[in-house]
Design a protein around this nucleic acid. Structure first.
Length: 317
DNA sequence: AACGCGACCTGCGAGC
DNA sequence: TGCTCGCAGGTCGCGT
């Protein structure tokens, strides 16, 4: 479900509800959701109980909450601990009141210290269990911290997110760094867009949308890509994701943190993804007959208009 | 070293 | 009705 806009919606919503609150108890309903916590469920819960959430930050699709541990008065840079969350394909982080029945796929429940008018539980719900939670250490970074969208970025990052590149909405995103990495790879453009070490936050939907907007084919060889083309595809990704973020942002005031990127709200704005067999909007406007087609690529679906995104010959142009 | 595939999971709708 | 198949927005690790 979640790509960058959805994760950022969750981050913003969550920050409002949990910052400054203390975790009082932890229920692990399905240990598979914390399998990335190598030391097991007891250690996971033990680390979280009595810890206070300092903030909610993000790098790409990785989301984490730096914690102040009980009895540790000052936060020493480089010694921090955080609760890491990745939503995978179907993860949700929901703020709920205790009387709300457990969700069918509720995996982990955190009870929080009482706060005026705020829900008492943070619940991790995940159908497919590709996502998960774990406790991790923060490591120092010289690059300015997690992501520029955090209100108060700390100069440290979760180790598991250190290899993740910045996303195109991050104020510290560097087109030059992106272009350099792109040119150094021998691969297809969509594969590169989905590589979180080259550019982060883009998943299958927004990759297809960005390529459609930039009129580029997914198999275009990255090492031959001209600067203007690379710029166009990054700008397209930035635009489509910030539009989606704006749409998702409308649910900020609901009681729980909305993760429902599939609520259909932004789906209507998509031009390529999921429009198999329907006329390409750009072609229709120009009086052309392009029809969006779906192909298997990297074991997943790719949606393109064969008229305005022609397949490159020899992976070139 | 980098790439690319399979594994990790559950549930839904289509087709038989 | 009930089975099987294909499909779903992500990431990691291993083999090449």
């Amino acid at each position: 479900m979640p790509e960058l806009p959805e994760v950022e919606v969750v981050r913003r919503g969550l920050a409002r509800w949990v910052r400054g609150r203390t975790i009082t108890s932890v229920d692990i309903l399905d240990p598979r959701s914390i399998r990335r916590h190598a030391l097991g469920p007891e250690d996971f819960a033990g680390n979280l109980e009595h810890a206070t959430v300092l903030d909610v930050v993000r790098r790409g699709k990785f989301l984490w909450m730096p914690l102040a541990m009980e009895g540790t008065p000052a936060h020493e840079p480089g010694t921090g601990v955080a609760l890491m969350a990745h939503l995978g394909m179907s993860g949700q982080l929901l703020m709920q009141d205790p009387h709300v029945p457990d969700e069918k796929h509720l995996k982990v429940r955190l009870r929080l210290s009482e706060a005026d008018g705020m829900p008492e539980q943070l619940r991790f719900v995940d159908q497919r269990i590709f996502g998960g939670l774990f406790v991790t250490s923060l490591v120092p970074t010289a690059d300015g911290g997690p992501g520029g969208l955090a209100e108060a970025p700390l100069p440290e990052i979760a180790g598991e997110a250190a290899h993740i590149a910045r996303d195109p909405l991050d104020p510290h995103f560097s087109f030059e760094d992106f272009y350099r990495k792109l040119k150094s790879r021998r691969t297809g453009l969509k594969r590169a867009l989905l590589d979180q070490g080259i550019i982060s936050g883009i998943g299958n939907i927004y990759a297809d949308e960005a390529l459609w907007r930039a009129r580029l084919h997914y198999a275009r060889a990255t090492d031959t890509l001209r600067r203007a083309d690379a710029l166009r595809v990054v700008e397209a990704a930035r635009e489509v994701m910030s539009d989606a973020l704006a749409a998702g942002g409308t649910s900020f005031d609901s009681l729980y943190v909305n993760v429902n990127g599939d609520s259909g709200y932004f789906a209507r704005s998509l031009d390529a993804y999921g429009r198999t067999g329907q006329p390409c909007r750009r072609c229709a406007e120009a009086g052309l007959a392009g029809v969006i087609k779906r192909e298997q690529f990297m074991n997943r679906s790719s949606h393109t208009c064969p008229v305005c995104q022609p397949r490159p010959r020899n992976g070139r142009w």
